[in-house]
């Protein structure tokens, strides 16, 4: 068997994944934290203020990476949902379930930072901008997945039902985004973008890229953390969990 495939197969086994998560989780967590500190420093202290928007534009160093993550995580979640539905892999169900709250958090951060940015820029906390509106809908898609999964008594059934919903969402997210954009141009014409078409100075770009990497690493950290504890809880009667607990104590 191809070594990459073998590694994936191994990763699917609960004890192996548990050990893998325990070993690698701290590295992802620490590097995410370090990069966040560096990115924040560069973005909020070092980078020059925007000549049009002043200091308020600095919130984009949080807003934009969070917005990227909100969509990226939905994709990862749906992919795990599909794997869980097709191959009925227990670990995929848990990964799927763990993605939803992290994604919802990033979506909420996107919305909140967008509102704080909107007040000085547009003069209102909320404007019906196409991207912000799509983010709001995305937040409710996440809530739907979380709500449906937790409504089932049986964890695995809940995960599978929510996975069907997430896949329906994947097909609909582009349509929702397109329809909102269509609606937006119909009613208000183009609005101001947080990232204009003008080229960005590299002193502004670097912090953004660092923050983007930091959020990715944080996502992996949070995903491993959540899935690992969910796994231990679901398999609590099993021998390997008892051994792992003894080892940890």
């Amino acid at each position: 068997m191809n070594p990459v495939w073998r590694w994936f197969h191994q990763l699917g086994s609960p004890p192996y994944f548990y050990r893998f998560a325990t070993r690698w989780m701290p590295w992802f967590g620490i590097s995410a934290l370090l990069l966040t500190v560096i990115g924040m420093y560069l973005g909020f202290v070092e980078a020059p203020a925007d000549y049009l928007q002043g200091d308020s534009f600095r919130i984009m160093y949080i807003h934009v990476p969070a917005a990227w993550m909100s969509m990226f995580i939905y994709g990862v979640m749906a992919l795990n949902g599909a794997i869980a539905l097709i191959w009925r892999i227990k670990l995929s169900e848990l990964l799927f379930l763990s993605c939803a709250p992290i994604g919802a958090m990033f979506t909420a951060i996107t919305l909140i930072t967008g509102m704080f940015w909107g007040k000085p820029t547009w003069g209102a906390y909320w404007v019906w901008d196409a991207r912000l509106t799509s983010e709001l809908v995305l937040l409710f898609l996440y809530f739907g997945v979380i709500g449906l999964a937790s409504a089932y008594d049986d964890l695995r059934q809940g995960a599978r039902a929510a996975a069907v919903l997430a896949l329906v969402g994947v097909v609909n997210v582009p349509i929702i985004h397109f329809s909102v954009k269509w609606w937006n141009t119909l009613h208000q014409g183009e609005t101001v973008r947080i990232m204009g078409k003008s080229s960005i100075d590299s002193s502004m770009l670097w912090p953004l890229l660092i923050m983007a990497l930091a959020t990715k690493l944080y996502f992996v950290f949070a995903l491993l953390l959540r899935t690992r504890s969910a796994l231990a809880e679901q398999e609590r009667g099993k021998q390997w969990v008892r051994e792992a607990m003894v080892e940890a104590a």
Binding site: F140, L141, V168, I175, I176, F178, S179, V180
Partner: peptide, 8 residues
Amino acid sequence: IVMPLYLP
């Protein structure tokens, strides 16, 4: 579940 999908 239903309302966000109704949007388009």
